[in-house]
Design a binder for these strands. Sequence first.
DNA 1: AAAAAATACAACCGCGACACC
DNA 2: CGGTGTCGCGGTTGTATTTTT
Length: 277
Amino acid sequence: MGRQPCCDKVGLKRGPWTIDEDHKLLNFILNNGIQCWKMVPKFAGLQRCGKSCRLRWINYLRPDLKREPLSEAEENQIIQLHACFGNRWSKIASHFPGRTDNEIKNHWNTRIKKRLKLLGIDPLTHNPIEPLNLENLEQKPDETIIQSNMPTTHDHETENSSTSSETKKTETDIKTDDITNDFSVVDNEYSNLCGNLDVDLLSNTTKTMSYSLEIAESINLSSASVATESSSNVVPAEGQDSIQQWFYSVDSLFSYGTTMSINMELEKTFFWRNYNH
DNA sequence: AAAAAATACAACCGCGACACC
DNA sequence: CGGTGTCGCGGTTGTATTTTT
C-alpha cells in the first residue's frame, strides 16, 4: 500500500502564482503565522496545496529574503561550501541569511557549474579536469598513495619532529590497530606539509581523520579539492569529523586554479590519521 | 524581424526524517 | 512499537526571458 498524497490535487491550482494569490498567502501568514501548512490554503482562501504554499512563502514571499542577485563574494563562498557539503543546499543556504536553498541550487546549476568548468575544475568533485593518470591508478591501496603524497616527519628539517609525533600519540585514545598512516608536524612546518598534501587523494582514500587545532597559521595545498563523490561517503568516527566537516570547521578560504589556499587555525601539532575501515 | 537555442528561475515531485497517536 | 501525517530536502521539470542565428 503506497503512501497517500500530501493533498487531494483535484481542483487545486498549479503553476505560477498570481499577485492575488501572493497577497492572500502573505496577508494570512503575516496575520496568523504558520501553524500547519496543510491548513494554510484552506484558511487563506487559496486553491493550492499546503506544500505549494510553503514553497511560495519560503522561496518568494518571506519578508527577509534578499532580492538582489548573488554577489561574486557569495558565489565564491557557495563554491567553498559546496566543496565541503556537496549538494546539501539547505545546509549551504543556512550560511546566507536571506537566501534560499532553491536560489542557491539554481545559481549553482546555471552559473557556477559553468564558471568552474571554464576554470578547468570539475564542479562535481572540485578536482582539476585532466586525463586520468593510469600510473597512479595502478598504485597500491590507500596507504601507498597517501604516503607518497603526505609528508612524513623526516621530510622536514626540524629536530623535534619525532618527539612531537610521539607526544601527540599519547594525546589520543584512538585504537592504533586501525591506523595505517600517522604523522605529525610542529609549528612552522606547515608550509612543507601542505605543499605536498594532495587533499583530493586524501579525501578519496581516507575514511576518517583525527585533528586538533589551536594556533593561527596559514598553509597552502597543492590540490583544489576537499569534497569528492567518494568522500561524501565518509563516516565520521565517534568524536571525529569527516574531512569536509573538518575543513569547514576551520573556516577555510579556497581559491580556485592550480592551488588552493586555506587560512586556518592550527594547533602547534598538526596530526593526521588515516584509517582502513 | 523571426525562429531557434540557450539561459534563468519558479515550481513540482518523490522520498526520507521526524513527530504524534 | 508500528502506522500515519506533515515537513523539509534535493532532483527535476516547465516556462518566461534573453541571446544567437
